[in-house]
Amino acid sequence: MDKIIISPSKYVQGANALNSIGEYVKPLGQKALAIADDFVTGLVGEQVAQSFAASEGELLLEKFNGECSRVEIDRLIAIAEQNESEVIIGIGGGKTLDTAKAIAFYRNVPVVVVPTIASTDAPTSALAVIYTEDSEFSEYLMIPRNPNMVIMDSKIIAGAPVRLLISGMGDALSTYFEARANARSGGQTMAGGAPTRAAQALAKLCYETLIEDGLKAKIAAENGLTSPAVENIIEANTYLSGIGFESSGLAAAHAVHNGLTKLEECHHLFHGEKVAFGTLVHLVLENAPMEEIQEVLAFCKSVGLPTNLHMMGVKELNMDKLMEVAAASCAEGETIHNMPFEVTADSVFSAILTAHELGK
């Protein structure tokens, strides 16, 4: 199997980076269609418009209606065609960004992704998640190329609710351990090949950055401030984790996250909050050294990520429901089968209960 690493063509990060978005986008196309919801438009719309005016670029800022659905994608494609847009820009959260990726894919034009939060590692990926109009999962859109550019304005991200930044840390926490498991098993990554040493190194750096700077970043962000630690965590949550997961592979942690969606009590949690507990289950499943498990537990507790089922909203443990979670985690095609040993629902069930007790 060939080794493959994939990534955005350009990654830009810094306080007030949006002041220069017009200049950054200019080489990709003169006429841009940007999409953002009402809140994000109010937050950065004027700043983006002024940057494009200063760079003498043409900008059409269109409202995103909130759901990355086929209906919304088709509506915005029609606007892009009518405007003869040469580049698509998505500004906001995950669904806005995925919609921009989809429009650009179907229009065969460049896409620029501008997250206003650092809550997941999805912005850098060649993937969009499509939902129905009723917000139910519909399909994955696998895009043959990563975004042309990702722009992270750290001042805006530091001003977002801190829980979102912490959730991003939870998502990033799994990257190294899943990459390590995938390398041991020889599984194929989402990039379509074996992991490169570069991707594995980024995954490890992601974990080291979280341990070193996670708590410091949380404290600064609680005060709406940027700092070297905040900058490092934004990069870890987005770029290091993004390249790490896509080009090094997923394993048990994300599969357990998917299984936890079976528990109604966990529906209020963000993606990364569930992945953090999934990471603990992953480590128990592979019988990792207690020293490593204790380091992960200490990190989660320091930044406020859940370490047991009670913290996730499960008041009483229902063994039948937890077995459903374990079974769903082991469904055919799930990434848990990238672990370097056979995994069963029974072994996952045992690991969930053990992780819960260790994290209490």
Rank of each mutant, 00 (worst) to 15 (best):
residue 5 I to W: 06
residue 9 S to Q: 10
residue 12 V to N: 00
residue 16 N to V: 01
residue 17 A to P: 04
residue 18 L to H: 03
residue 25 V to Q: 05
residue 26 K to V: 00
residue 27 P to H: 08
residue 32 A to H: 05
residue 33 L to G: 01
residue 38 D to H: 06
residue 39 F to D: 04
residue 43 L to R: 14
residue 44 V to G: 11
residue 47 Q to K: 15
residue 48 V to A: 00
residue 60 L to V: 08
residue 64 F to R: 01
residue 64 F to A: 01
residue 66 G to Y: 01
residue 68 C to E: 03
residue 68 C to N: 12
residue 71 V to E: 15
residue 72 E to V: 14
residue 73 I to Q: 07
residue 73 I to R: 10
residue 74 D to R: 15
residue 74 D to Q: 15
residue 76 L to C: 02
residue 78 A to P: 01
residue 95 K to Y: 09
residue 98 D to L: 13
residue 99 T to A: 09
residue 102 A to M: 10
residue 110 P to T: 10
residue 111 V to L: 07
residue 111 V to P: 01
residue 113 V to H: 07
residue 114 V to I: 12
residue 124 T to K: 02
residue 126 A to R: 12
residue 126 A to Q: 04
residue 127 L to Q: 06
residue 128 A to R: 10
residue 130 I to M: 15
residue 130 I to C: 06
residue 133 E to N: 14
residue 135 S to K: 15
residue 137 F to W: 11
residue 139 E to C: 05
residue 150 V to T: 04
residue 155 K to A: 15
residue 157 I to F: 13
residue 168 G to E: 12
residue 171 D to C: 04
residue 174 S to Q: 01
residue 179 A to W: 13
residue 179 A to P: 14
residue 180 R to P: 05
residue 181 A to F: 07
residue 189 T to F: 03
residue 191 A to K: 04
residue 192 G to T: 05
residue 199 A to V: 03
residue 203 A to V: 00
residue 207 Y to V: 00
residue 208 E to P: 02
residue 212 E to N: 12
residue 222 E to N: 13
residue 222 E to V: 05
residue 225 L to Y: 11
residue 227 S to R: 13
residue 233 I to K: 00
residue 243 I to M: 07
residue 244 G to V: 06
residue 244 G to I: 08
residue 247 S to V: 07
residue 250 L to M: 08
residue 252 A to K: 02
residue 252 A to G: 07
residue 255 A to D: 09
residue 260 L to H: 14
residue 261 T to L: 13
residue 261 T to C: 13
residue 263 L to V: 10
residue 267 H to P: 04
residue 268 H to C: 06
residue 272 G to Q: 11
residue 274 K to N: 09
residue 283 L to Q: 13
residue 284 V to F: 07
residue 286 E to P: 08
residue 290 M to C: 08
residue 294 Q to G: 10
residue 296 V to E: 09
residue 305 L to Y: 06
residue 305 L to G: 11
residue 306 P to F: 12
residue 308 N to A: 10
residue 311 M to K: 12
residue 312 M to S: 12
residue 314 V to K: 09
residue 314 V to I: 15
residue 315 K to A: 13
residue 315 K to W: 09
residue 316 E to T: 13
residue 317 L to D: 03
residue 317 L to V: 14
residue 318 N to T: 07
residue 320 D to N: 13
residue 320 D to E: 15
residue 321 K to I: 02
residue 322 L to E: 04
residue 324 E to T: 07
residue 324 E to K: 09
residue 326 A to W: 02
residue 327 A to R: 15
residue 328 A to F: 14
residue 329 S to T: 15
residue 330 C to Y: 10
residue 332 E to Y: 05
residue 334 E to L: 03
residue 337 H to D: 05
residue 338 N to L: 05
residue 343 V to G: 01
residue 345 A to F: 02
residue 345 A to V: 08
residue 346 D to E: 14
residue 347 S to Q: 07
residue 352 I to M: 05
residue 355 A to D: 09
residue 357 E to P: 01
residue 358 L to A: 09
residue 359 G to M: 03
